[in-house]
Design a protein around this nucleic acid. Structure first.
Lengths: 114, 114
DNA sequence: GAGATAGTTAGCCATATTCCTAACCAAAGG
DNA sequence: CCTTTGGTTAGGAATATGGCTAACTATCTC
């Protein structure tokens, strides 16, 4: 199964400042929808929409207790994002390593050529 | 200056599979627009649009030589993305550390209470 | 200079996204 | 049982996004 759809959802969830703020709040600990809404000048259904998008991406999970819905971050859900970034870093660093190897060999050949 | 607009642009640039594929190609080394376009079944202006978005976000830079535009990745441009992820990890790990401290103190108090 | 190649610009279309208000539902408190 | 509180659903508006085609421009090759 390709990771692409998951990465789509993850990066798309992170592509909005409101959702990143929500995640930062939840990184400090679980919170109710009302608690999360307080710092924002936004209608509740709009904020609920953002939470829904984070949940659909798997970055948070929510639980209803009575009339209160509590949200919590899912730390391991960030792993594919970090993984993709690490892959890119490995790719360009590998390119630098190959260049370094090449230059090192070239220098030795020049020394041996004398 | 807030990092938010930069993070918006960065995450939005990464939120599309075509653009992530382009970045993976460029992580292997610079490439011309034509080279980059080959793996995609997409009209050239559409692909150019994606490259423009990556450039606007600062993730790539491009240079025109004659009729060929060459693109190259900008590795350091990913730093704010990693930084934000590290911040979130520090937040929830800090919460775990505080919990751990709390539990450790609670255990000691119980021992001393006897 | 004509033809080919690489890329650019403009305009359009369909879909997605973000936000709103209004109305409603479920659960708690008095 | 009524009121309050916390959240949910529905529908709409404005904007953004991702793709297309057509036409064009700039550069290279012969």
């Amino acid at each position: 199964m390709s990771a692409e759809p998951r990465l789509d959802a993850l990066f798309q969830a992170l592509a909005d400042p409101t959702r990143r703020s929500l995640l930062s709040q939840l990184a400090r600990g679980p919170a109710s929808v009302s608690d999360l809404a307080q710092p924002f000048d936004m209608a509740l259904p709009s904020l609920m929409g953002h939470l829904r998008k984070l949940e659909d991406a798997g970055l948070i999970e929510t639980r209803k207790d009575g009339r209160v819905r509590t949200c919590a971050i899912v730390p391991e859900a960030f792993t594919p994002v970090r993984g993709w970034l690490d892959e890119q870093r490995a790719l360009w660093e590998g390119r630098l390593d190959r260049l370094d190897d090449y230059v090192t060999r070239l220098m030795k050949e020049r020394q041996n050529g004398h």
